[in-house]
Structures are given as structure tokens and as C-alpha cells.
Design a protein around this nucleic acid. Structure first.
Lengths: 214, 214
DNA sequence: GTCTATAATCCGATAGAC
DNA sequence: GTCTATCGGATTATAGAC
């Protein structure tokens, strides 16, 4: 990671500082003063370039979303469902452990999820719901049920829950949740384990469904 | 739930209002003014009875912890591990969906997890770590590995992640995460599904472990 | 014990000089 | 574009009357 801060103009520096600080501390806990100081800009710069703290925040989401799309793209939806799910788990975990700008997005998401602003609904619809629909479609294929079914929904929520929880452990440094340290090998083991766990869980649910019908 | 507010003294009313409001909105988002208004007390009452907002918060945790111990006790640790885990999942989910004071604790936990105060570490050690150690011990028995192993740890984290995520969906009403509505039957289905999913996940991990040794 | 009034901070936003 | 100075609002905590 080359530091190109010195080459960026004030607006770009503010955007970068906003992504970094807000993904690290959350929206409410980050003041415009913090952002301006980190960006080497004056306290009035945020309002000059973005109009308000809220609008800077929206720009930060858009920026982080484009970066994760570039660095951690989701698998092709036309491949085998099980392969898709394994790739999905892998990509999501890798993004969670990404300490470069490519990892800003999952942290912004979990901050917004757990400390919602007035913009939460808009962010969800734009950036998250489409991805979640993709995942539920693949899980439904594996379960042999419609994507709109309660089983497909809750099963997807379960898998997403494990990933979100992992994201929390990385995002919230304060408190014992963030005290775990993961080496490169441990991350790879974690990916394999979560893939195995999810696959086993889905298989068990599919089997139980058949049993209930018989 | 009988409303006995009128019978309580000011200190008790403050404690109740603090539990309700902070579990609903979080510590930072709840002002002492909100709490005093809800308790029908004066703005200065919190400092008079508890010394500070922080000390009231500590009292709220202690109160909520004693209530969940009473209304949603964990299963006996000497029963069969699989039965223990199923009971654990059931009890935790029931607590998450409990809208009475018995459900204050999980909401306080998730608020503190995702918006940590300076007291986070102390709360964890006192109220949470012991429970998590219990769960990891049972999961380790099912996996056939030591409780201190990476596999037992991450597997327990996976299961806990699903439960925490469910807790988030109930706690954070703002944003689409809290828009799902669960009927009594859906909650029971959810319990069965999550038990099946966890059991299947653990079985798959145990099988993969054997395969790796062969 | 309860109340009013206020002190002491802190934050986002903006006016106006340069 | 950048800066200083300040306004207006919100919050915790407390002093002091009743």
C-alpha cells in the first residue's frame, strides 16, 4: 500500500479520511473535526466540499462500495450453487480481514447495521439487498426450496449471521470481541471451517425437510 | 405483565426506565433526561440516586442479568452435550424474542457489543465469558477435540454468531434488519432449524477432521 | 427528596476576512 | 480555496432553593 496522500487534493483526502475513521469508529463517534484533522484540512472544509457531514458519509459509502466491488467481487451467479456458496464465504471473509481500503465497506456496513443513521434504509436497498437476494437464491437451490420460502430465508440469515459476527469481531476493536488475533493460516482454516459448517448445516436441513414430508 | 410502576419508588422506577430505554436505544443514544422523564422523576434524580449515568448503567446490567438468570436459565451442564446445545440454542432464542424484562439482557449485551463503552471489558468478564466457556466445552465434546483448540473456538463462535445476528435483528428496529416479523410458530420453526443447522455443521466438521487425519 | 436554574462541554454549521 | 471566530443546539452534572 503506497501512501499517495500527498498527491491527493483536499476533497479526496477528506473522502479517504472519512472512510478510514468512520469505518474504524462509526458515524456518530467520528466528528468532522477528526476527519479534517486527519485529512490535513480546515474544520470548515467538509461543509465547503460536501455540504454536510451526512453528504460526506454518503460519498464514503459509494466510494467504499466501488472499492470492494473491485477488490472482492462476488462469484459468478451461474456456477454450481455449492461452489458459489463456498466462494461467497471465502470472498466475504477475505474482505472482513482486508486492512486496505478494500476492507472499508464491510466495516461501514456493520457500523451502520449496529448504529443505524437516518440513511440506513437507503444504504441497505442500494448496496446490500441485491447481494442478499443473490445468496438466498443459491441457498434455495441447495435446499431444493423456493427462494421466497421461510427455510431459505432463515438459512441464509444463519450463514450471513456467522459472517456478520466475524465482521463484528474485526470491526469492534474495543472490548474482548476484537481481542482475537488471526494469522494468515488461521484465516484460511477459518474459511475452510465455515464453508464446511455451512455445507453441513444446509445438508442437515435438507435431510430434515425430507424426513418431515415422509 | 402487570404494570407495578405506580408502586415503585423513584430509584426503582429509574432502574426500570434505564433498562427499558438503554436496551431499546443504546447507552449513548439514551439521555438521562429521557430516563428521568420515562420514570416520572426529575432531571437531577439520576445523579442523586446513582451518582452518575455510568453507575446507573452498571446497575441496569446487574438487574437485567439477574432477571434473565431467573426467566431463561441455561441447561444443566451435566446432561448430554447434544441435548445441552439444543437447549442452549432454544433458551437463547427465546430470550431474544422475550419482550418482557426477561429479554432486557440480550439487548443490553448486543448494544454493548456493537457500541462499546469503557465498561465493556468488565461486563464481558463478569457476565459473558463464563457462559461462552460453558458453550465451548460442550461443542468441544461433540467435536471430540479439546475446548482450547482452534476448531472448538471457531465452531462455538459460528454458533454464537447466528444467535447474536438474530439478536441484532430483534434489537435494531431501525433499518431493514429489524423489519422481519416473527410469529409464535415461526419462532419455534426457527429454533428447530437453527438446532438442526448447528448439529449438521458440527457433524460435518467432525467428519472433515477425521478425513484430514486419514 | 424534589425541584429549578445553570455551569461546563462538545458538536455541526456558517459568516466573513483573507 | 482556506482560515478564524462564533452561533445555536444538545448533553451531563451540580449548586442551591424549597
Amino acid at each position: 500500500m503506497e501512501d499517495t496522500t500527498h498527491k491527493m487534493n483536499t476533497k479526496q483526502r477528506l473522502l479517504k479520511a472519512a472512510c478510514e475513521l468512520i469505518s474504524m469508529r462509526g458515524y456518530e463517534q467520528t466528528t468532522v473535526n477528526d476527519i479534517c484533522t486527519a485529512a490535513g484540512a480546515n474544520i470548515a472544509a467538509v461543509n465547503y466540499y460536501f455540504g454536510s457531514k451526512e453528504d460526506l458519509y454518503k460519498a464514503a459509502w459509494a466510494h467504499a462500495a466501488s472499492l470492494i466491488k473491485e477488490h472482492h467481487p462476488l462469484p459468478d451467479k451461474n456456477i454450481d450453487p455449492l461452489e458459489w456458496l463456498n466462494e461467497f464465504v471465502r470472498v466475504r471473509i477475505e474482505a472482513v480481514f482486508d486492512d486496505t481500503p478494500g476492507g472499508w465497506f464491510p466495516r461501514l456496513v456493520v457500523r451502520e447495521m449496529t448504529n443505524p443513521t437516518e440513511m440506513a434504509n437507503a444504504f441497505y436497498e442500494t448496496y446490500l439487498t441485491p447481494k442478499m437476494n443473490l445468496a438466498r437464491t443459491q441457498v434455495a437451490k441447495l435446499l431444493g426450496v423456493p427462494p421466497s420460502s421461510f427455510l431459505a430465508d432463515t438459512c441464509t440469515v444463519n450463514i450471513n449471521g456467522m459472517l456478520v459476527h466475524l465482521n463484528c469481531m474485526r470491526t469492534f476493536k474495543k472490548g474482548p470481541m476484537g481481542t482475537r488475533v488471526f494469522s494468515e493460516k488461521m484465516i484460511n482454516d477459518l474459511i475452510t471451517q465455515m464453508q464446511t459448517f455451512a455445507e453441513g448445516g444446509i445438508a442437515a436441513l435438507k435431510k430434515a425437510k425430507k424426513g418431515a414430508c415422509a
